[in-house]
Amino acid sequence: MNEAPPLLSVRNLRTHFVGEEETVCAVDGLSIDIRRGETLALVGESGSGKSVASLSIMRLLDPASGRVAADEIVFEGEDLLAKSEAEMRAIRGNEIAMIFQEPMTSLNPVYTVGEQIAEAVRLHQDASPKVALRRAAEMLDLVGIPEAAKRVHVFPHEMSGGMRQRVMIAMALCCNPKLLIADEPTTALDVTIQAQILELMRTLQQQIGMSILFITHDLGVVAEIADRVVVMYAGRAVEDAPVEAIFEQPRMPYTQGLLRSVPRVDRFADEQEPLYAIPGSIPSPSRLPKGCSFHPRCPHAAEICRRSVPELERVAQDHHVRCVRWREIEAPREVPA
């Protein structure tokens, strides 16, 4: 399984924001691999650096403030960091596409949705406006918008949030990208629409055969869609594992805490222990605590945790954790549904 080179391989990604007074490290040494056809979920709280990481990979950060450095970002055997801006433009939307959190603001209000999807087609394929618009209608049909041929002439404000997110997906997928980066695509939608959109993404993934980098803070969504999970905390990956392992044998106290703070629907209310909350809040990236950045909030913190930043250690095949005490901390006995 591991023989084929991954579609995208990021080694030691570091993204700094240079401010007037201080330089903030938003992503510190992130390494991820995405294999072909696989869905990798990047999970973490707000401010843990997930979105910044994705924008860094796409090289979409404003170069005036965000400094991206990495040992390598290899996509299909080519180093994205070595590419010129024009070469990157040819990759964006064509090979790597992105969808965003807010379908309400991610579409340009002054163009019809058809024109906006057609724009992506015209940028990457030498298509006439007419052909591009026909392709846009096909895409709308593919993402499950009824009467697509007519809906291409509709403006974004005439659509609901779920419909707009479908349009965003159509826009991202119209050039058959190999990798789709989805930055919290379901966060702004209500639960039923969320389920529809996830189902749609899964179906399309099988049809097109693309890989997905799925960024979210919602563990329910992760369980739905991911093959593998990388948990991020304060700019660092703290645990990465196949999705079953994350839910069944989380080794990092942070992951365990996250899972315990999700309400369980498989138990009656009177059997349920009070919902757990991880004490404190995520530290500001400019004032990270010394040592393991999670130790002030960790129930298992010991003296050693305050001294040095732990390395990612291998727990099992494909399972790594950044915790010095993982052998001493028991994995929760019970298997959540």
Binding site: L60, A90, M98, F100, Q101, T105, S106, N108, H124, A172
Partner: peptide, 20 residues
Amino acid sequence: REFVLAARSIGTTNSRLIGR
């Protein structure tokens, strides 16, 4: 606004971004 980021993420050039 996010649609400008979205436009950049499909590979729009600066001149097109400004004009369109």
